[in-house]
């Protein structure tokens, strides 16, 4: 039995792309801690990393760049995995983590607390609450009569999302002018808000581990609810798990970095074009690639026109859109 199992088809097929992505992740993290408004030479960086170096450099590397890079990695990974899950759940390769209104709910939560002049921690907290309220509302409404088709879920989500959109516009319209930049930057998504990278990284790790054994069931679910049920998948339980997981992932991402666009849509989609549709490969690959993309985007956002800053969401779009179009074009 063991002899047979050693000649598995799938594993070697996973190792190469995941190693490449891991290297890429490492490279972007390295770039993120070596670049910034202050230039630190390699020798100085080495001193810092080996426990010495100038105090300013230590502060820059350990208190600013590293936590921010890890937050970017965490948020990017969360969004990409959430996007990959949403796409399977809705059987729609164009779904993104925000399609069901989560980011809208989070934004309304965050903007409300900004309007009330609450602290940054309270802004994060209310963003999380907003996202969860949105997720539960969509879940309850779509699920109402018992049948839960992707179309029904999608429609409910899209309507709720546009409701949040109106609420956001309203809040922007009535806010005092000095509050507006903060609100707009939050809506564009920005790593400057990241407080600690750990919640994002821990949630990313936990949910990835939970999703690992479900990977093959996801592949089956991707063929349709009926087919999946006929192949022994408890469809409803699996769909709820995916929905809850994707909601939590998105909520933590939004709390970490505001609503950053494109990562959740483009990363899983790009990976599918290159690596195929095996979710067991796509999910860990999305965690790495999404994390790497956002880390790179954030590094560029804070260095391109330093000391002035760009919103990271702009850079993810600038990197993501052409790459995506190229891949789409190449794949016939």
């Amino acid at each position: 039995m063991a002899a047979v199992k050693t000649s598995r088809g799938a594993v070697p097929h996973f190792i190469l792309p995941l190693s490449i992505l891991a290297l890429l992740t490492f490279a972007t993290l390295a770039l993120a801690i070596t670049t910034g408004s202050v230039s630190i030479s390699n020798a100085e960086l080495w001193q810092v990393l080996s426990g010495g170096g100038e105090p300013l450099h230590r502060t820059l590397v350990f208190e600013l760049r590293l936590p921010r890079a890890l937050s970017a990695f965490g948020a990017g990974g969360l969004l990409a995995v959430a996007g990959a899950l949403m796409q399977v759940l809705l059987r729609n390769p164009l779904a993104d983590p925000y399609i069901l209104g989560l980011s809208g709910g989070a934004a309304v939560g965050a903007l409300s607390s900004m309007l009330l002049g609450l602290s940054a921690a309270a802004v994060s907290g209310s963003a999380f609450i907003g996202a969860m309220v949105s997720a539960l509302t969509v879940f309850g409404l779509a699920h109402g009569t018992g049948s839960w088709t992707p179309t029904r879920l999608l429609l409910t989500g899209v309507v709720i999302a546009s409701g949040w959109g109106a609420a956001i516009t309203f809040m922007l319209a009535v806010s005092p002018s000095d509050q507006l930049p903060g609100m707009l930057y939050w809506l564009m998504g920005d790593l400057a808000y990241a407080r600690s990278p750990w919640p994002a990284l821990i949630v990313l790790g936990l949910i990835s581990i939970i999703m690992l054994p479900l990977g093959r069931s996801l592949n089956v679910l991707a063929r349709g609810q009926m087919q999946a049920a006929a192949l022994g998948v408890s469809v409803r339980a699996l769909e709820w798990t995916i929905y809850i997981a994707a909601s939590l992932l998105t909520a933590f991402a939004v709390v970490t970095a505001g609503s950053i666009g494109f990562v959740g849509l483009i990363v899983p989609h790009m990976l599918r074009l290159v690596l195929g549709n095996d979710q067991r490969l796509i999910l860990p690959a999305a965690a790495l690639a999404g994390g790497a993309l956002l880390t790179l985007a954030d590094t560029l956002a804070r260095t391109l026109i330093a000391p002035e800053q760009l919103p990271a969401g702009v850079i993810t779009a600038l990197i993501g859109v052409p790459t995506f179009l190229y891949l789409l074009h190449r794949s016939r």
Binding site: R91, N219, R223, Q227, N277
Partner: peptide, 10 residues
């Protein structure tokens, strides 16, 4: 119905 997949995967 469903997502893209190859013949062998299916």
């Amino acid at each position: 119905e469903g997502f893209p997949a190859t013949v062998l995967e299916t």
